[in-house]
Design a protein around this nucleic acid. Sequence first.
DNA 1: AACATATGTTAGAGACTCTTACTTTGACAA
DNA 2: TTGTCAAAGTAAGAGTCTCTAACATATGTT
Lengths: 211, 211
Amino acid sequence: MENAPQTEKRTSYHHGDLRAQLVEATRILVEEKGPDHFSVSEACRRAGVSTAAPYKHFKDKQEMLRAVALEGMRRQRQDMLTELDQYVPGTLGRIVAMGRVYVRFAVKEPGVFRLMFGLSDTHGDDCELVETGDDTFALVQAEVACCRGSNLIEDSDRHQAFLLWSFVHGLSFLKIDGKLTEAKVPVDLEAVLEDVAHRVVGAGSPGAPGR
Amino acid sequence: MENAPQTEKRTSYHHGDLRAQLVEATRILVEEKGPDHFSVSEACRRAGVSTAAPYKHFKDKQEMLRAVALEGMRRQRQDMLTELDQYVPGTLGRIVAMGRVYVRFAVKEPGVFRLMFGLSDTHGDDCELVETGDDTFALVQAEVACCRGSNLIEDSDRHQAFLLWSFVHGLSFLKIDGKLTEAKVPVDLEAVLEDVAHRVVGAGSPGAPGR
DNA sequence: AACATATGTTAGAGACTCTTACTTTGACAA
DNA sequence: TTGTCAAAGTAAGAGTCTCTAACATATGTT
């Protein structure tokens, strides 16, 4: 069982590692053409197999995309953990760091990022996808609580984490959709993230409960 | 030239109002199946014409979707203007109102909402689309300036408007993508919008410049 | 009435998804 | 070593989709 290279013709009838290579080809194509213009055929061409081959490994096209989305979510989460390592616990710097990773990921891999969130139509009940997303959100909640000096997540932490998430999520989408051109809406990412972290976490809950 | 009904068979060879009915059928289908699973054929079936008919009115499938997106953006903008009428100028209530319209639109027509923003890949340079979006954003900027008691839009207004936009945009997407289930992240829309309006506009620029 | 134009239709090329039936290969038990 | 099975590939094709080309019909202008 030799490692079949991506482009060269393989010598053996069997491929050796087709599933992984199809996922990788799918990921690349999703970036190149966007999630909606991805075709299984093209992925097959790139992997050097017949168009029927993927169906030995995936139920259908959606499941190939799902695999890429899941891998993306795991990578995003890992990126966050890696970045967090560089900051002192319980500081706003860590909140900012998570936002930075979030937006950077979206900008670097807009196709996969879109997939990670746009797939909910068809995979809204997919446990693995949902749990991976929840885990990452839990990370943010824990960080907010930590800034408050607690290890227990309270409702206010959840609320603030949700505000942060909504903001970086919207920012990411606006960026990759080209709504924030430098001329019209200049965004110094680092400054904005710090600003928002202060407004949401740093300042506590200014006008939250009353009114 | 009689008004051809949508479903009944038409009597005349010519349709009468095909372009408009195709756009409407497209809009409905985009809601029913999502922007990526929309098919021209199905729209033709619904409009009661052959599959070649649309190409007398639209260059291709993308242009049909573009028409729906544009119509959506205009409708969103109009909704905002209508809602704004009910509030006193220069108050946070108007900021909240715009956010409410934004999120409501997304929830009511997630398909069209996705289209309005996801189309940038292929139509990023489309003047009409870009300008309509810019106009709506200008509305928010003006409102922020007005809260400051000015008719002139300054950089700080642009910045705050951008923060607001990012937030409601992210919130909208998270909602329609099912990431905010009532159990995990309960969101009282009205309360959240007021909270954010206070944090961003009401409180001025807490940690913006110096920090 | 004649003609140009706009707006339909039919037929079909080419691409795509996915299935069925067949083929090749590697692994393992005897 | 060899026979058998399951895994993983291929070829062929059904059915759908987008879009084009050639043709048909209605409308409005002169």
